[in-house]
Simulated assay, not measured.
Amino acid sequence: MTTRYAALLRGINVGGHKKVPMAELRELLTELGHTDVTTYLQSGNAVFSSASADEKAIGTALERAIEKRFGFGVDCLVRSAPYLKAVADDCPFPADELEGKQLHVTYFSEPVGPERLASIDTAAYLPEEFRLGDRALYLYAPNGLGRSKLAEALAKPRLFKGIIATSRNWNTVLKLVELTRD
């Protein structure tokens, strides 16, 4: 029995740094024993099937393979199709009424409690808002991520020290759900 997964690579192919061609990423995943491999965009989204049920082990193996092939480290989160669908279904914002660039999900390597974000004065950033989910943070940024002051505040390293975090816009969130469907 196989499970559909998405691998979410953090910080590749941004500004010419940490270049990982998608064809080579597909090849690496296939070499690691995964099947039905496809990639989405150039920003580090791969979808595949695997007999393994261990997301963390799959991610660690991919991180090692990338470092061996390209000579640099890349954080990688692997999430199952049911998890990705649950994150989309549990969105606390009216996603159907928003543009994809207004809504983002940051996926975390482990659960994040509200105490990590207690120092953020949410009222100071309105109409921007965020909500926590299951190893995820939903960010509503009506003017887009590039202009978001709240996103800037949430990006402070001290908030999520020791946690891998990688963000995707809502269009990508939905596309990954679609691509991981059986």
Results as ranks from 00 to 15, higher is better:
residue 2 T to P: 11
residue 2 T to V: 12
residue 2 T to G: 10
residue 4 R to W: 14
residue 6 A to F: 04
residue 6 A to L: 12
residue 9 L to W: 04
residue 10 R to T: 07
residue 10 R to A: 05
residue 11 G to C: 02
residue 11 G to V: 03
residue 12 I to G: 00
residue 15 G to R: 06
residue 17 H to Q: 13
residue 18 K to Q: 13
residue 21 P to R: 10
residue 22 M to W: 08
residue 23 A to Y: 08
residue 26 R to M: 10
residue 26 R to T: 09
residue 26 R to V: 06
residue 28 L to F: 03
residue 31 E to R: 06
residue 33 G to E: 04
residue 34 H to F: 12
residue 35 T to D: 14
residue 35 T to F: 09
residue 36 D to C: 13
residue 36 D to N: 12
residue 40 Y to R: 05
residue 41 L to S: 15
residue 41 L to E: 11
residue 41 L to F: 13
residue 43 S to P: 12
residue 44 G to A: 08
residue 44 G to R: 01
residue 45 N to E: 03
residue 45 N to L: 05
residue 46 A to S: 12
residue 46 A to E: 14
residue 47 V to I: 15
residue 48 F to T: 04
residue 49 S to T: 13
residue 50 S to V: 10
residue 51 A to S: 10
residue 52 S to G: 10
residue 53 A to H: 07
residue 54 D to G: 11
residue 55 E to A: 15
residue 56 K to G: 12
residue 56 K to W: 07
residue 58 I to D: 01
residue 58 I to N: 02
residue 59 G to T: 00
residue 60 T to F: 14
residue 63 E to A: 14
residue 63 E to Y: 08
residue 64 R to F: 15
residue 65 A to G: 13
residue 65 A to R: 03
residue 65 A to D: 04
residue 66 I to S: 08
residue 66 I to R: 03
residue 68 K to S: 15
residue 69 R to M: 10
residue 69 R to H: 13
residue 71 G to Y: 14
residue 71 G to C: 06
residue 72 F to Y: 15
residue 72 F to H: 11
residue 72 F to C: 12
residue 75 D to R: 04
residue 77 L to N: 03
residue 79 R to W: 04
residue 83 Y to K: 11
residue 84 L to P: 01
residue 84 L to M: 04
residue 87 V to Y: 05
residue 87 V to E: 01
residue 88 A to G: 01
residue 89 D to L: 14
residue 91 C to P: 09
residue 91 C to H: 12
residue 92 P to Y: 03
residue 93 F to P: 02
residue 98 L to S: 11
residue 100 G to M: 09
residue 102 Q to E: 15
residue 103 L to V: 13
residue 103 L to D: 10
residue 103 L to F: 02
residue 104 H to D: 07
residue 104 H to V: 14
residue 106 T to Y: 01
residue 108 F to L: 11
residue 108 F to M: 15
residue 111 P to C: 14
residue 112 V to G: 01
residue 115 E to I: 07
residue 119 S to G: 14
residue 120 I to K: 09
residue 122 T to R: 15
residue 123 A to V: 10
residue 124 A to C: 07
residue 125 Y to L: 05
residue 130 F to I: 02
residue 132 L to H: 00
residue 134 D to P: 10
residue 134 D to S: 08
residue 135 R to M: 14
residue 137 L to E: 00
residue 140 Y to L: 15
residue 141 A to W: 00
residue 141 A to C: 07
residue 142 P to H: 04
residue 143 N to S: 08
residue 145 L to R: 05
residue 146 G to A: 11
residue 147 R to H: 08
residue 148 S to T: 10
residue 148 S to R: 01
residue 149 K to M: 12
residue 149 K to W: 05
residue 151 A to Q: 09
residue 154 L to R: 00
residue 154 L to S: 01
residue 154 L to P: 01
residue 154 L to W: 00
residue 154 L to E: 02
residue 157 P to G: 05
residue 157 P to R: 02
residue 159 L to E: 06
residue 160 F to L: 13
residue 161 K to R: 14
residue 162 G to P: 12
residue 163 I to M: 13
residue 163 I to N: 07
residue 164 I to Q: 00
residue 164 I to T: 03
residue 165 A to I: 00
residue 166 T to C: 08
residue 166 T to M: 09
residue 167 S to F: 03
residue 170 W to P: 03
residue 171 N to F: 02
residue 172 T to Q: 12
residue 173 V to T: 14
residue 174 L to G: 12
residue 174 L to V: 11
residue 175 K to F: 05
residue 177 V to H: 06
residue 178 E to W: 06
residue 179 L to S: 10
residue 180 T to F: 03
residue 180 T to G: 00
residue 182 D to R: 13
